[in-house]
Design a binder for these strands. Structure first.
Length: 282
DNA sequence: CTGCCCCTGTAA
DNA sequence: TTACAGGGGCAG
């Protein structure tokens, strides 16, 4: 379930119980989670090391030990938390680390799509691959955003979700930000005015900051944030329902193989490229 | 760009 | 039973 706000919440929650602790042992119950490393290699790489810092970059969690970083990506259903007794861990746990105070850090992931790998410090940047600017970092300025968006010929929602451009926006908050800024998700970035793009920039920051607040509050107990979720989307998952702003009807379309929700009445655009606008090849 | 894959759970 | 799910990587 996690997008940037939930990943940030996970980091905040896990920071305190890990502070100063050492890893006594590591156990992988789903080989895929640390592939292409073997569970043995993973365990060897992290056992005995001490926690130094927990950092978020986009939707990635970096748990820095001395000399090695545990790279965690929660994907769709991953969750990270500590429990008092590893024997009480749920069956959906992909891996767990036993700490020197007896507690355990568990990577709970029902769908098993998540990733937890040990990366030596010198190989970290390469392992993470090309990553865009984090929308909550100071470098995420309106100017930078406008320039980025202006250079994109993709539909604006796909652009927002491209982690190589902006790291951290996912399907929910991309849709919510576009709704907030009243921009049609099918709009082409390069064709949007800088005024509208600046509005979108502000919307992204506002939507994410707000979501972090509710995610941090909601995510306090093991078991996940799903049931505690207080955040109620304006468009996401509301197909057929009434728009709260204009009483239009929320629509669902497909973009990049995923659902996009928006209000066709109050989210307008320079629209997706129409046939008539295209220049004939040849 | 699209479609398919990874995997499991849930709802219609 | 099918469709869909807030992730991303890959092939075509």
């Amino acid at each position: 379930m996690p997008e940037l706000p939930e990943v940030e919440a996970v980091c905040r929650v896990v920071r305190r119980p890990l502070r100063g602790r050492r890893i006594v042992s590591a156990h992988v119950s789903r080989r895929r989670v640390c592939a292409p490393q073997t569970p043995e290699e993973f365990a060897r790489a992290v056992t005995g090391r001490r926690f130094r810092a927990v950092e978020r970059r986009g939707k990635n969690i970096l748990i820095h030990l001395d000399g090695v970083t545990i790279w965690v990506h929660l994907r769709m259903t991953g969750n990270l938390y500590t429990i008092a007794d590893a024997r009480l861990r749920p069956v959906s746990v992909s891996a767990h680390l036993v700490l020197d105070n007896g507690r355990s850090l568990v990577f709970d992931d029902p769908r098993g799509l998540g990733v937890m790998r040990a990366i030596p410090a010198e190989r970290l940047a390469r392992a993470l691959g090309p990553m865009g600017v984090d929308p909550l970092a100071p470098e995420f300025t309106p100017e930078r955003f406008v320039a980025l968006a202006r250079s994109s010929r993709a539909a604006i929602k796909l652009f927002l979700m491209d982690q190589r451009r902006i790291a951290g926006l996912g399907n929910i908050y991309a849709a919510e930000a576009l709704y907030c800024a009243r921009i049609d998700p099918r709009s082409i970035g390069a064709r949007l005015s800088s005024a509208r793009l600046r509005r979108l920039h502000a919307a992204i920051v506002a939507v994410l900051s707000n979501a972090i607040k509710s995610a941090s509050l909601a995510y306090q107990r093991p078991g996940g944030f799903a049931e505690a979720e207080e955040f109620d989307p304006a468009v996401y998952g509301r197909e057929g329902l009434q728009c709260r702003r204009c009483r239009g009807r929320i629509r669902r379309i497909q973009q990049g193989g995923r659902s996009t929700y928006f209000c066709p009445r109050c989210q307008s655009g320079p629209h997706h490229v129409r046939r008539a606008d295209r220049i004939r090849p040849g």
